[in-house]
Design a protein around this nucleic acid. Structure first.
Lengths: 200, 200
DNA sequence: TATAAAAGTAACTGTTTGGTTGCTTTTCGG
DNA sequence: CCGAAAAGCAACCAAACAGTTACTTTTATA
């Protein structure tokens, strides 16, 4: 095999293992040796390709953040069609979070560390949804008093929170919120909540 | 000074310092030496009183969880009075979270560690709010189709999320959500959302 | 096919950290 | 006021860790 391709494979194996380790344990508790071992790669390769533990961490972060672009493109393609569009914004983001658990966890680690490393990464998570809601208001399909800015923030927060504090909340509520079924119920509930809020 | 009192003072100094350290850095990154230093106490005292780093951590956790009881008692004293009660449930919890930032952070650390240490701690965070909403439904003041269980979970999640992912959300939305003013706006917005949802 | 650059490896290092040990000082019941 | 028990302390230790070094193997190209 040619060298360039091999390099890419090694880098990828490292990134994959690092994503698992960092999202599971966070930057502080993650172990470089452990990443090297589970990647099946010599530790030195990590330093050769990523400079340092933190360099590897930011590389993982960019990679995972990058996956948002699929969601963003989906939203960007919509035009406002009433309730159905509100449903879509929520359920698409829900799907994204369900399929990307390491995104959720890395975001949480980052926030606890004052977003030290995520600060440099750009996302336009909000613009799509915001554009759609504004369109809805302008076309008179949503109530004119709607605070679009706050609503979009809420949509984000509420979808995210359905994934982020499941352990303690399950414990406190006595309901296992981690099952796919429970998440479906959550999604429906959140959607209903917003539909009642944005119309009329 | 008598010995017993002195012991209590030392223990308290340790717990105070530990709460700051653990909520700031999490269990993994927290340093026992650093706690001892900022408590103004010899490291060995920590091991004498709390056995291990993890023993100290669970002690901090219990202490901080314990502060919830004030909120619980407040809620327990209410009877359902319509919109005003819904406002109260939300704003009291909001106030609690605003006044107890280390509760928020420790909860987040715990969730990222699969609630390993919080699992043993009991709280009845939900029963008060749930009782009130059921009362509202039974007395015909809230719509009969209301899913009380999901609503209470949402109230909790949404209030909590107003404090939990502020760094990245501020960054993404371009609004500083960490200021007291922004939090007031959030509280109002969330309250409106629920009011629209639970009535009619 | 000769050779230089890059990929890959194992063994090592300096430092940090949770936890311990052996000792001195303070407290308090009788 | 005496003696035991608890409080308090500084120095120490073994393990774990991020990062390095010195060396061998593979690949690309001229």
């Amino acid at each position: 095999m040619e060298q360039k391709k091999k390099t890419e494979i090694t880098k990828n194996k490292i990134l994959e293992a690092a994503e698992a380790e960092f999202s599971a344990l966070g930057l502080a508790a993650a172990r470089v040796d452990s990443i090297a071992k589970s990647a099946g790669v010599n530790k030195q390769m990590i330093y050769a390709h990523f400079e340092s533990k933190e360099g590897l961490y930011t590389a993982v972060l960019s990679r995972v953040y990058g996956r948002l672009s699929v969601y963003q493109e989906t939203i960007a393609a919509y035009t406002f069609q009433g309730a159905e569009t509100v449903r879509r914004i929520i359920s698409d983001y829900f799907d994204f979070l369900m399929e990307n658990p390491s995104f959720v966890r890395l975001m949480l680690w980052e926030n606890l560390n004052d977003a030290r490393y995520a600060a440099g990464i750009d996302t336009e998570l909000f613009v799509g949804a915001e554009r759609l809601l504004r369109e809805g208001v302008e076309r008179g399909m949503l109530r004119p008093t709607l605070d679009v800015e706050q609503t979009v923030i809420s949509m984000n927060m509420f979808c995210f929170s359905a994934f982020s504090n499941l352990h303690t909340l399950s414990k406190i509520s006595g309901i296992d919120l981690k099952t796919p079924d429970a998440l479906r119920v959550r999604r429906e509930h959140i959607t209903e909540l917003f539909l009642k809020y944005v119309f009329e």
